[in-house]
């Protein structure tokens, strides 16, 4: 019997950097499903994921780590839940510039509650440049109030070291 595949899921709302972060890790050219945005396009973001992004890394023992990026629109929830089944960990990216990132946090921790409760989730907060007064504090406070002690980092999804740090934290969280 083949062992269960090792899966990492990159999720979060539209414009949080999921596709970019997945690109930092994948050793194959990721399969992406980017389409031109019909609503909400900006100077910096003109396309959005409409199905799943996919990338992979082959380990030294030949096993493959499957990297999935979910679409950010909430009407794709069902797809996110299917992809997350059996996933080793969830990499949740949130855009600090969004109108209500705490609402995004609440939504995605609920969507992936099983992983959050097991500590199999790490948060990367993007677009914190220029933010004053510890921009991560509101995320920590929200999580702590609900009994979660998940890793939260200010990240730049274009920076490979930042994305690797998220994997490192996830690995540590899964160990006692």
């Amino acid at each position: 019997m083949n062992p269960a595949p090792i899966k990492l899921v990159f999720t979060g709302p539209v414009g949080s950097g999921k596709t970019t972060a997945l690109h930092q890790l994948s050793e194959i050219t990721p399969v992406v499903t980017e389409q031109a945005m019909t609503v909400g396009a900006t100077v910096n973001k003109t396309t959005t994921t409409v199905a799943l992004d996919y990338g992979e890394v082959t380990l030294e023992n030949g096993e493959k780590v499957l990297l999935f990026g979910t679409p950010g629109q909430r009407y794709y929830d069902y797809m996110c839940k299917i992809v997350a089944q059996g996933a080793t960990g969830i990499m949740l990216l949130l855009n600090n510039d969004n109108a209500d990132p705490q609402n995004d946090l609440a939504y995605f921790t609920e969507l992936f509650a099983d992983h959050a409760k097991r500590g199999a989730m790490v948060l990367g907060i993007t677009h914190t440049e220029g933010a004053r007064n510890n921009p991560l504090q509101r995320y920590h406070a929200w999580l702590s109030d609900r009994g979660y002690m998940l890793p939260v980092f200010a990240v730049d999804a274009r920076n490979r070291d930042d994305v690797i740090l998220m994997v490192e934290a996830l690995a540590a969280s899964l160990e006692y």
Binding site: L59, R118, M149, Y176
Partner: peptide
């Protein structure tokens, strides 16, 4: 003490192998 649902220990951690592959 946090009341979470984590396993006490896991044996093989595939993410460690991934990190090694990524150079960490």
């Amino acid at each position: 003490a946090l009341n979470d649902k984590r396993d006490k220990r896991i044996g093989y951690n595939p993410l460690r192998a991934l990190l090694s592959r990524l150079g960490v």
